[in-house]
């Protein structure tokens, strides 16, 4: 166990944890989307979990730093908030919010983050952006809604873990038009295997991956 000081409060946390994990397990919320506990290497793509650590010149994503004894951390400085808000607004500018028809359980992950940051779900002053990607993609037994997807990459990661390093889900396209795609070897019947897993659907924070059966229910 090591001692760290978060926002002026001293807490005892397990060694080998990331700062993000340590804070979350002690009831200190830090916004995050791409973080997964069992990841060996942090994905660090959502850029929401910034914190300030004493001795470091600039805020760092807390999922990328392991706790050290005596570490002094602040999760609420203006600079941290500014970066978090900025990243969140960027995400929301590419995520049209249809709360009424969205199948996520409310409040959804994004709503919780918005509440924590004290901002709305609108990206203002940024404009809403349209991506040049299909509205819905048929993945066989499930649908993928690119516009809901925030590209946190959790589904790709869990799929890789479930399939011994050879994920069926992966990223496709580039830049702003990046989306998740489903690949399987021709002739391979993955449906049975996938149906017994569904890890990707369960881990998606924005209901971008939905079983076809469930989607019909909500429609």
């Amino acid at each position: 166990m090591v001692q760290i000081i978060v926002n002026g409060k001293s807490i005892e946390v397990e060694e080998g944890q990331t700062v993000l994990e340590a804070c979350l397990s002690n009831g200190i919320f830090i916004p995050n989307l791409c973080f997964l506990k069992d990841r060996e290497h942090p994905h660090a793509s959502c850029r929401l979990c910034f914190v300030e650590i004493e001795g470091r010149p600039a805020p760092v994503p807390s999922c990328t730093v392991n706790v050290e004894d005596g570490m002094v951390i602040r999760t609420d400085t203006p600079e941290v908030k500014r970066l978090q808000k900025s990243a969140f607004k960027l995400i929301m500018s590419g995520h049209p919010c249809h709360a009424k028809t969205c199948p996520t359980e409310k409040p959804c992950t994004l709503m919780k983050i918005a509440k924590h940051l004290g901002v709305g779900l609108s990206p203002k002053p940024l404009e809403k952006l349209e991506r040049d990607i299909p509205e819905v993609v048929d993945f066989g037994f499930m649908f993928y809604f690119p516009y809901r997807c925030v590209l946190c990459g959790r589904c790709v990661h869990v799929c890789r873990t479930q399939n011994e390093g050879k994920p069926l889900l992966t990223f496709a396209r580039r830049g702003f038009d990046t989306m998740v795609a489903f690949f399987s070897d021709p002739g391979e019947n993955v449906e049975a295997k996938c149906r017994s897993c569904l890890a990707c659907i369960n881990i998606c924070p924005t209901a971008a991956l939905v079983l076809k059966a469930d989607e019909r229910k909500t429609a």
């Binding site: 660090a44 793509s45 959502c46 850029r47 929401l48 900025s86 990243a87 960027l90 995400i91 500018s93 590419g94 940024l126 404009e127 952006l129 590209l151 990459g153 990223f171 396209r173 580039r174 830049g175 702003f176 038009d177 990046t178």
Partner: peptide
């Protein structure tokens, strides 16, 4: 840069698109 962004992280993927717009 916008075209060449890999699309991984929020700031580069979406932020540069806003700058360009």
């Amino acid at each position: 840069t916008q075209k060449e962004s890999c699309g991984k992280c929020t700031f580069c993927r979406i932020g540069t698109k806003h700058l360009l717009n």
